[in-house]
Amino acid sequence: MILTIDENSEDLRLDSYLSELYEGISRSKIQTAIKKGKVLVNGTEKKPSYTLKDGDKIEFEDLVEESILKVEPENIPLEVIWEDENMAVINKPSGMLSHPTFIETSGTLVNALLYKYGQNLSDINGEFRRGIVHRLDRNTSGLLMIAKNNKTHEYLANIIKEHTLTKKYHAILVGNYPRDNDVITDPIGRNNLNPKKMAVRPDGRPSVTKLKVIERFGNDATYVELTLVTGRTHQIRVHTSNKRHPVYNDTLYGAGQGKVKTQEQVLQSFYLKFAKPFSAQIIELELKPDEKLEKVLNYFRNRRV
């Protein structure tokens, strides 16, 4: 198996990366495999403590039974917002994983994509991430780009890296955000206490989120639009939490469950603007607020009447 490291996995230790990938397999077993030369980075052996870099290619022997690794197509309904011969944009629902893990191999977006598109999906990031160029957290809904071939995958990965793709989100934040417009520039890196979380830290990577207030609900909540200038893992959730206004119901980043119960964070990727692959045509896509957003917005608006 060969996987290419992107900026979301950069700065992780090699053994930590594989531990996340092979969730459920002990760290010591993974470290032993690395020390025995069963894991190569850019064709050479590395220590378990090696820090991954964007673009690194990880080649390794399977650490679990082959039968567990197989990802099956599943007839799961997909809402395709736009597509051509090279790519598609899907409206991923909240609660769906973007791609399988070694613990969950069914019910993901990739299972649905394999059923709909078969082998007409990029495989640059391995079988578990067929077609996946960028990800949305399980409980974040919205627009997600899918590559149908490797050339398009590279094109889309490049416009993400060069920040020529416009991505906007809607969110409800806890409390009354103090500024109508803000640019949050806190650097983001791995959380030292929990490698599955991110945190604002002085030695983190440059991270920029633009925030605009849409509607205020007193001291209870604020409805906002957020534009990602950079695309770090959990960027919006980390930035808003660090400002002491976490995304509503985002229990991982300190919000707690609010009075309106939802499936974790009330966050939607609602807008994409990009140049169509290998064309000068500009594609602009926008979604209406999803079920979670509508539920929480209606609650606060009705309280105000």
Rank of each mutant, 00 (worst) to 15 (best):
S141M: 02
N194H: 12
V213Y: 02
N139K: 07
K148M: 09
V200D: 07
K212W: 11
V183M: 09
V174T: 13
N111E: 07
I160P: 08
N191Q: 09
K212L: 03
R190A: 00
R130H: 06
K210E: 13
T152R: 06
P195V: 09
P206A: 11
K196V: 06
G126L: 08
H163W: 13
K210L: 01
T152C: 11
R130P: 12
R205E: 09
Y177R: 00
L193M: 13
L121V: 04
Y115M: 11
D137F: 00
A112I: 00
I124F: 08
L109H: 01
N181Y: 13
P195Q: 14
P206V: 12
T140Q: 06
T108E: 09
V208Q: 05
R179C: 12
L109C: 02
V110Q: 03
T152F: 09
K161Y: 10
N181I: 12
I124L: 13
D137A: 00
N191W: 08
L156W: 01
Y155M: 01
L144C: 09
K151S: 14
R216A: 04
K167I: 03
R216H: 09
F128L: 15
K212A: 13
K168S: 10
N158I: 01
P195Y: 15
G131I: 09
F128Y: 14
H170C: 04
K116F: 07
L114M: 13
R135H: 10
S207V: 08
I184M: 11
T185Y: 05
I146H: 03
D186T: 10
A147M: 04
D123Q: 13
D180C: 03
T166L: 15
N191H: 14
Q119R: 07
K151C: 05
N125I: 06
K116N: 11
G175M: 01
G118Q: 04
S207G: 02
R138V: 12
K151Y: 00
I146V: 15
M145V: 15
N139G: 07
I146K: 00
R130E: 11
T108M: 05
D186P: 07
N139S: 11
D182F: 02
A147I: 06
D123G: 15
N139D: 15
T185N: 12
L211P: 10
I188G: 03
K197Q: 14
R135I: 00
T140K: 08
S141E: 07
Y117R: 06
K167Y: 00
E127T: 14
